[in-house]
């Protein structure tokens, strides 16, 4: 029976390893980023100027934070309505037929197309198209929002259709038996009952959008000196793109490199909060459906 105990211990350690990894990630990122966070304090978040090569260097992240929020916000406002409608179709109308067997794998496929490929297509197709329609360069919040919407859409569909399916069938019968139509039943009974799951899908979508790197990076233009955008046609930087772009030039041990880690800390905290919220709402099994 010693073998049994050994196996159990081994699997236990494997399970615990996720905790260790998360702590390692947070610990190391924080220890690199902390000096800059301490040195610049709140002005790191609220400063208007990001000039790492100036003397003395300035690390003000506000334009970048606003850039991040506007790109992800736009993405969610495109993806959420489409995603919820699609989830309603898949959960309520599609039945189990051929159509569903076509749509669901295709949706899964879209989730897993490498983000650099999406970014590349954004770069060679979307950006020139936008430039043609609206003038300017095409690199913009709009381009980033569209590409990110394509990336978050399948996640929103998966989680909300799951939430809609989890609504007890009896509610639908009770409503139909009172003479309500199918759509009235969906809108007045099913959607309110699935509300928290749908909300969680949007929160998680927002978290994904904020953390996404390659796809956005390639289409938002990343101005040399970030500024606060005033329209969706402005170029912006986002948190993640700043890290990738400056990582190549930053010197190991410099304040600039530390500032990039500080951005990493901020991203970590945002995603932890998002996941904590979704975990709480969904009762622990966030991605079960996406498998």
């Amino acid at each position: 029976m010693r073998g049994e105990g050994l196996i159990k211990t081994f699997t236990f350690l494997c399970a615990g390893s996720s905790i260790l990894v998360v702590f390692l990630i947070f610990g190391y990122t924080l220890s690199e980023g902390l000096p800059v966070l301490m040195k610049y304090g709140l002005s790191f978040l609220t400063g208007l100027h990001w000039k790492p090569y100036a003397d003395p260097p300035q690390f003000g992240l506000l334009p970048t934070i606003i850039g991040t929020l506007s790109v992800s916000g736009l993405a969610i406002s495109i993806a959420a309505p489409i995603g919820i409608l699609a989830a309603i179709y898949l959960a309520e109308y599609s039945g189990g037929g051929f159509f569903k067997n076509l749509i669901e794998p295709a949706t899964q496929l879209l989730v897993s197309i490498p983000s650099v490929v999406l970014g590349f297509i954004g770069l060679v197709f979307l950006v020139p198209t936008l430039a043609k329609i609206f003038g300017g360069w095409g690199f913009s919040i709009l381009a980033g929002g569209i590409v990110l919407a394509a990336m978050t859409l399948p996640h929103i569909i998966c989680i909300s259709s799951d939430a809609i399916r989890a609504v007890p069938r009896e509610y639908r019968y009770a409503s139909l038996a009172l003479g309500a139509s199918k759509w009235q039943t969906v809108r007045r009974v099913v959607l309110p009952a699935a509300r928290s799951g749908i909300l969680a899908s949007i929160i998680l979508g927002l978290g994904n959008a904020i953390g996404e790197t390659m796809a956005v990076l390639m289409v938002i233009g990343n101005p040399e000196v970030p500024y606060i955008p005033t329209s969706i046609f402005d170029r912006v930087r986002v948190l993640t793109s700043t890290i990738v772009i400056e990582f190549n030039y930053a010197v190991w041990g410099s304040d600039q490199m530390r500032a990039l880690f500080a951005i990493g800390v901020i991203l970590f905290i945002i995603t932890a909060a998002v996941n904590l919220l979704a975990f709480h709402i969904l009762g622990g099994r966030i991605h079960a459906k996406e498998i």
Binding site: V22, G211, T271, N275, G284, I286, H287
Partner: peptide
């Protein structure tokens, strides 16, 4: 929770 959290950490981090 930590498994979900790890899944949510942006790859850049």
């Amino acid at each position: 929770f930590f498994v979900e959290l790890l899944a949510g950490i942006p790859s850049i981090v």
